[in-house]
Design a binder for these strands. Structure first.
Length: 271
DNA sequence: CAGCGCCCCTGCCCGC
DNA sequence: TGCGGGCAGGGGCGCT
C-alpha cells in the first residue's frame, strides 16, 4: 500500500496529535508482524512524552524521551488517530494510547509492516543505515543517478526502486516517473544517457511532490490518519491502466513483470 | 558487490 | 453461490 507520499501523508497527519502528548499505555494485540514487536514497550513508555514524529524513507520515526519507535507500514498498514474508545477490528495489532483520550492505532491485514524500538539514533539502525538519499533532497540529482547507474546491468525501473540508490520510489511511482520522462522501464540502467538521468530525476521529484500534495494514492485500502483516501489515483497515467489508451498517443498501455512486480508503460512514448 | 528469486500474510477479484 | 488461482502499493535475506 503505502509508498513515500502515503507515509509522508501519515506522518503529517499524526504529528500534530501526538507530538508533546503523553503516553498512558502501549497495547500489543498481535506481535507477529514482519518482525515480532519487542516486549516491554509498555513498561518503557508509560508516562513518557513524544518528542517528534519524522520520516526516513518509508519508516516513521516516533521519538520519545527514552528512545524511538520505528514503524514501517509494509504493503497494507495504516495508522490512524482515534478516540481510545473506538471499537477494535480484526487487524488492529498495535496502538499507543495517550493521556488526552486519543490513540494511534496500527491496522495491517497482511502483517508485512513492523514496529521496532531503539534507544539510539534510529538513523544508525541496521535497517536504515545503508539507505540512499531522500528523493526530494538536493543530494538526489542527475549527476548521482548517472554516476551510480554506470555499468549496472539491471533495468532502470528496478534501479530506481533500489533503496541504496534512492529511497521511496515504490512500484506505482516508478512506472509513473518513467512514463513522465519517456524512458522504457526495461532500458538497462547502465545505458541511461545524461539527458535521461536529468529528466528521470526531475520526473521522480515531480511525481512524488504531486502525490504528497494530493494526500497520496488510494488504490484499495490506503487511508490517511483521519481515515480519508488519497486522491492521486485519479492522476495516474499508466499504473493499473493495462490495455487502456495512452493519454498522450492513444496506443494501448502495456503491462509486463520486472523483478516480480507489475510494470506499466507506453511502448510508443517510452524508449 | 550485483543480481536474482523467495517469502512473509490476508483479502479481493475473476473465471469456472 | 462456492471455490481455486492469481494478484496486490514492500523489502530483507540468502544464494550464485
Amino acid at each position: 500500500m503505502p509508498e513515500l507520499p502515503e507515509v509522508e501523508t501519515t506522518c503529517r497527519g499524526i504529528a500534530p496529535h501526538i507530538k508533546n502528548n503523553t503516553i498512558t499505555s502501549i497495547i500489543v494485540r498481535n506481535r507477529k508482524l514482519r518482525w515480532p514487536i519487542p516486549a516491554g514497550l509498555n513498561t518503557k513508555l508509560k508516562n513518557k512524552k513524544i518528542i517528534s514524529v519524522t520520516r526516513r524513507a518509508k519508516y516513521l520515526l516516533i521519538k520519545t524521551e527514552v528512545g524511538t519507535l520505528i514503524i514501517h507500514l509494509g504493503m497494507s498498514g495504516s495508522l490512524r488517530i482515534l478516540p481510545t474508545t473506538e471499537a477494535v477490528e480484526k487487524h488492529d495489532h498495535f496502538e499507543i494510547q495517550f493521556k488526552d483520550g486519543i490513540c494511534l492505532r496500527l491496522r495491517d491485514p497482511r502483517r508485512f509492516g513492523s514496529v521496532l524500538w531503539t534507544k539510539d539514533n534510529p538513523l544508525k539502525h541496521k535497517l536504515l543505515i545503508n539507505l540512499g538519499p531522500e528523493p526530494l533532497d538536493k543530494e538526489f540529482n542527475a549527476e548521482l543517478l548517472f554516476e551510480k547507474s554506470r555499468k549496472r546491468k539491471t533495468t532502470i525501473k528496478q534501479f530506481i526502486m533500489d533503496a541504496k540508490i534512492v529511497v521511496g520510489v515504490g512500484n506505482i511511482y516508478a512506472s509513473e516517473a518513467l512514463f513522465l520522462s519517456s524512458i522504457h522501464p526495461k532500458r538497462l540502467a547502465g545505458k541511461l544517457s545524461k539527458a535521461q538521468s536529468l529528466s528521470l530525476t526531475k520526473a521522480i521529484k515531480k511525481i512524488l511532490k504531486q502525490a504528497i500534495k494530493q494526500g497520496g494514492t488510494t488504490l484499495k485500502d490506503f487511508t490517511s490518519s483521519d481515515g480519508k483516501p488519497g486522491y492521486f489515483s485519479q492522476k495516474l497515467k499508466v499504473y493499473n491502466r493495462a490495455d487502456e489508451s495512452c493519454l498522450t498517443c492513444k496506443k494501448p498501455i502495456k503491462q509486463i513483470t520486472l523483478g516480480q512486480r507489475s510494470t506499466f508503460y507506453c511502448s510508443s512514448c517510452q524508449k
